[in-house]
Write a protein that binds this DNA or RNA. Structure first.
Lengths: 231, 231
DNA sequence: AATATAGTGTGTATATTCTACACTAAGTAA
DNA sequence: TTACTTAGTGTAGAATATACACACTATATT
């Protein structure tokens, strides 16, 4: 650790795997780089950490610049520090994942100065990515796949009001397996962390499903009990 | 992420929470600092990452310098990047935990140049630590507490040959709760990842227990199946 | 008005896993 | 030989997980 502080020319950056759920698909936000190295390649959004900001702050800033959103669910998941991961010098990057409620609305306030555009891309259909970003993505995806089984992160991706079918679809795409409808509902409702609303789905051409909300209050009460979803 | 690389004066360090199990107690290795800041305080072992080494390599190097051991089980668990965590400047630190087989033998090849001594200390009896090292320790401990329930990391702390009682004790100190002997043994043996040896414990003044080995080969075969220990 | 369509919503039986619980066996020390 | 200490073992009941299929409802179409 820290001693009398010789100064090195190392750079920190943050990279973000930003998840969204839309159209029954799990997506991440990719940017197209407009600078060398890897000009015109797709990459994870990220940027350099300023001298006087914490890494969490840097992650929030990057997300805000890219999406115009604040108070997003974010979590640091791994730090990548191979010597040659960046062709122009030593860059250590701290990776975060974030969860965004798309609500069918994929508009973003575009876009910082090093990217020409940002696009939501299905995780099943990713292009080649710059740097070691494929590795970073895989690890982030793995992380949420684990986490969804014991933490209520799915609700961060859904609109405030959602149907049980939507919730189940989301579990299915993240866990990459079919779940049984009856068992899923039984288990989910048993936890008692969903509030059933008096409202129904609108604009569908078939029987409308009931809407539910995630009940944070009840969840917090159960919090010490670990919940296991999605098995 | 990475663009044309302005250079900042930031420092990377590595800090290690090094676990050992001895005497029925879970311990970590602390060093006493012989330099400012926090001279004479206890701290987690750590050091600065060199320009031309990966962070994993730095972690291994630090461990080797401190203990003379290589090929230790290590895992990165979190990166601490608050602006003011180091009184003398911006230092971002990547934290690792490591698991060492003490085998009753607590000798270490002492000790690098910034520490006057290194001591194994029970996790239940830690002194105040320098910097934010208490936070780092807590997070690392939490991490192995979770991990032990689905990965066979406990065996990294035990001697090659161990008794089921030793294994259970280790689970108990990490999970911080009593486990039922019969249920523990049933479950553990059921996994089929322990090899029963023809040997028994020696030097005890009561009935000697059978010795077991962790069977890595069998474990790897089951690997995709997630194991859950210790519930 | 009748019908087709598409997704909603529900129960039960079986298998598996978890939990609680207490005594005898074996080896050592005196 | 006896006293002591830990090793080693089974079963019954509760809880949880899994497998599985059909009737209902709202809308769109004719």
């Amino acid at each position: 650790m820290e001693t009398l502080l010789p100064k090195f020319d190392s750079i920190f950056s943050i990279d973000c795997v930003i998840f969204g759920f839309d159209d029954g698909e799990l997506k991440i936000l990719l940017i197209e780089r407009n600078q060398e190295p890897f000009k015109d390649w797709w990459a994870l959004p990220g940027y350099i950490v300023e001298q006087d900001e914490s890494i969490d702050h840097a992650a929030e800033r990057i997300l805000y610049e890219l999406t115009g959103l604040r108070d997003i669910y974010m979590d640091q998941f791994y730090t990548f520090g191979d010597v040659n991961r960046h062709p122009q010098g030593r860059v250590i990057t701290v990776a975060y994942y974030a969860m965004i409620r798309l609500n069918g609305n994929k508009e973003l306030k575009p876009v910082s100065n090093y990217a020409s555009k940002a696009v939501w891309t299905s995780v099943n259909d990713l292009p080649k990515l710059a740097f070691d970003h494929e590795k970073i993505f895989s690890r982030g995806f793995e992380k949420i796949r684990n986490k969804i089984s014991y933490q209520p992160i799915a609700f961060e991706l859904l609109p405030e009001k959602f149907t049980l079918t939507q919730l189940q679809q989301l579990y299915e795409v993240i866990l990459n397996k079919k779940l049984d409808k009856r068992n899923f509902r039984k288990k989910m409702l048993n936890y008692g962390i969903l509030k059933e609303l008096d409202e129904k789905q609108k604009g569908v051409s078939y029987r409308a499903a009931k809407l539910y909300k995630f009940d944070k209050r009840k969840y917090s009460k159960l919090f010490h009990k670990e919940l296991t979803f999605g098995k």
